[in-house]
């Protein structure tokens, strides 16, 4: 089936997506809080992308996670698992409270996304750089079989240090994988600090994808659902080449203990957790009312 999207969202839909994004943020916090520590930074920066993809863009059926013609999402930066668990839970793949078993013995919700464990997780990631290669393979698999499935993948800006990312990029362009859209969570920080200090990206990650022959869209505010939606629509319309969407996001967005310090992983105190959850609840209420 050919995929298509309306060019613009109605006011109501936009509102719903904003609400969904904050719901995802709140649940992401609760999921990580259930274990006390984890990758808050790289999870929270993605809540808005997840809301757009799972709220509007992707062809999915939560009651049938293995539906043949579904679209795939691959979280190549697998340490962002909690934001995906929140999203899938809120969509009804499982009760979202199931994910409060994050990293517990025998859990179905490990720190990094795992296709053998969680309904709705398509591919196993965690070794940075591999997820995009796997996603490229999936896109080629669908193309070769002539099915209409679209593959969405998200990589980190630190992850983009991996040579494998660029091997995948050249492969996807070479095979004209226009059923593939790659989002870059350009939150400007990796584990050891700012990307610009740890390992800089020359003319930029977008310029590198461009050089490999991709269509590149730069989304100025990668935490704005309207801008993300417009980019996803443009990606679907782009034929003959894969599309890369650079999302300029904020690491830790919304987590009061993580955002101000661009923390990669966090182990806040009970008071800090309580403060963060209360702040997110207030934001959700405000967005609902708006």
């Amino acid at each position: 089936m050919e995929r298509s999207m309306t060019a613009e969202l109605t006011k109501e839909k936009l509102h719903d997506l904003r609400v969904f994004a904050e719901e995802i943020r709140l649940e992401t916090l609760k999921i990580i809080r259930s274990r006390g520590f984890g990758h808050v930074g790289g999870s929270m920066s993605l809540a808005d992308l997840m809301a757009v993809l799972y709220g509007e863009v992707m062809h999915i059926d939560p009651s049938n996670p293995r539906m043949k013609d579904r679209d795939w999402f691959v979280l190549s930066k697998g340490h962002g698992g909690p934001v995906m668990y929140a999203t899938l839970g809120l969509k009804g793949y499982y009760p979202v409270s199931d994910a409060y078993q994050l990293n517990r013995p025998g859990t179905r919700f490990p720190s990094h996304t795992d296709r053998s464990l969680t309904p709705g997780v398509e591919l196993t990631t965690g070794s940075l750089g591999q997820g995009i290669s796997e996603a490229v393979g999936a896109a080629l698999g669908f193309k070769t079989q002539g099915t209409g499935n679209h593959v969405y993948v998200c990589i980190g800006d630190g992850e983009s240090d991996e040579g494998e990312v660029w091997e995948a990029a050249q492969f996807a362009a070479h095979y004209k994988l226009d059923n593939l859209t790659c989002f870059v969570d350009n939150n400007r920080y990796q584990l050891d600090g700012p990307v610009s200090e740890v390992m800089s990206h020359g003319k930029g990650i977008g310029a590198k994808f461009d050089a490999e022959g991709w269509h590149v869209i730069d989304v100025r505010d990668g935490n704005d659902v309207a801008q993300i939606y417009a980019a996803a629509a443009e990606a679907l319309e782009t034929k003959g080449v894969p599309t890369c969407v650079i999302l300029n996001t904020i690491k830790g967005k919304g987590a009061t203990f993580a955002e101000p310090v661009s923390a990669h992983s966090s182990q806040p105190t009970e008071e800090e957790w309580a403060e963060a959850v209360a702040a997110e609840e207030a934001r959700l209420a405000a967005v609902r009312k708006a």
Binding site: P110, S111, H112, D114, T124, G126
Partner: peptide, 14 residues
């Protein structure tokens, strides 16, 4: 670093 089970919370891939 983090050989075997000492990778603990990072899980299978690590």
């Amino acid at each position: 670093s983090d050989p075997g089970v000492t990778a603990a919370f990072n899980g299978a891939t690590h």
